[in-house]
Computed example of a mutant assay.
Amino acid sequence: MARVGKLTAVGAGVVGLGTLVASYAMDDDQHTKRQFARVVASEGLYARPTKPLPTREEQMKNLRLEQFDVLVIGGGATGTGCALDSVTRGLKTALVELDDFSSGTSSRSTKLLHGGVRYLQKAIMGLDYEQYRMVKEALHERANLLDIAPHLSYPLPIMLPVYKWWQLPYFWFGIKMYDFVAGKECVKSSYAISKEKALELFPMLKKDRLVGAIVYFDGQHNDSRMNISIALSAT
């Protein structure tokens, strides 16, 4: 019976998480569909290739016979990004990968698109302008990816449980500053919820001394598919 109880609690927690994500996803569904349709129309995602892709043997032959300006070693996020950058500068570029695209670290990230709430705290507490600039730039990139790749990225609600009364206004102010720094690129305004609502969404939360929660929004994306898209863009 104890095991059944644990499984039930786990299931309830998963359902709670699904409720939180789904509630936002339903609100934003029409916007995402419009964005995806725009990307498909502008980039021809469903267009068939006009010629067959070169075989591995042909690619190896080209590497031996042709002269390249840049050779990129590694087909992860950094490698494909460097390849795309060099191609857009007009440089003839070759990329080699030992295994497969995103076979390593680039498919094992947190998959978050975020500006960094913790970095913003450091910027404010330490009056560190460089930290602030980093957060500002990251928030801009978050908005950019959500806009240009709605088929690979989406807004993500994050709930922060609060267990001390004084932390509620403290965290609320910090998260509101996060929204403020994002400006017009804010995904969705953060808000506070009651203890009862937090437990409804996440029944497995520790109930003792829970006073409420803060919900804020960042982004999440499919890191490995994003990497493949960057590699294809460099071809």
Rank of each mutant, 00 (worst) to 15 (best):
G16F: 07
L17M: 08
T19E: 10
L20S: 00
L20W: 07
S23M: 10
Y24H: 15
D27Y: 10
D27E: 13
Q30M: 11
K33S: 13
R34N: 07
R34E: 04
F36Q: 07
R38A: 02
V40T: 04
V40K: 15
A41K: 15
E43V: 02
E43K: 08
G44Y: 09
G44R: 13
G44C: 08
L45T: 06
L45P: 14
L45M: 11
Y46R: 12
A47D: 15
R48H: 07
P49C: 07
P49V: 01
K51A: 08
L53R: 15
E57A: 13
E58T: 04
Q59N: 09
Q59H: 08
M60S: 07
M60P: 05
K61D: 10
R64G: 06
L65Y: 07
L65F: 11
E66L: 03
E66Y: 02
Q67C: 09
V70I: 04
V70N: 12
L71D: 05
V72W: 05
I73V: 10
G74A: 09
G74W: 12
G75M: 09
G75S: 07
T78F: 11
T80Q: 11
T80P: 05
G81S: 14
G81H: 04
C82D: 08
C82F: 08
A83E: 06
L84P: 00
L84D: 00
V87P: 02
T88G: 02
R89Y: 03
R89H: 09
K92N: 02
T93E: 06
A94D: 02
L95E: 08
V96L: 10
V96T: 03
D100I: 05
D100G: 07
D100R: 15
D100W: 13
D100E: 10
F101K: 09
F101D: 04
S103F: 11
S103H: 06
S103N: 06
T105N: 12
T105V: 03
S106E: 10
S106P: 08
S106N: 09
R108M: 09
T110H: 12
L112T: 01
L112Y: 10
G115D: 06
R118A: 04
Y119Q: 08
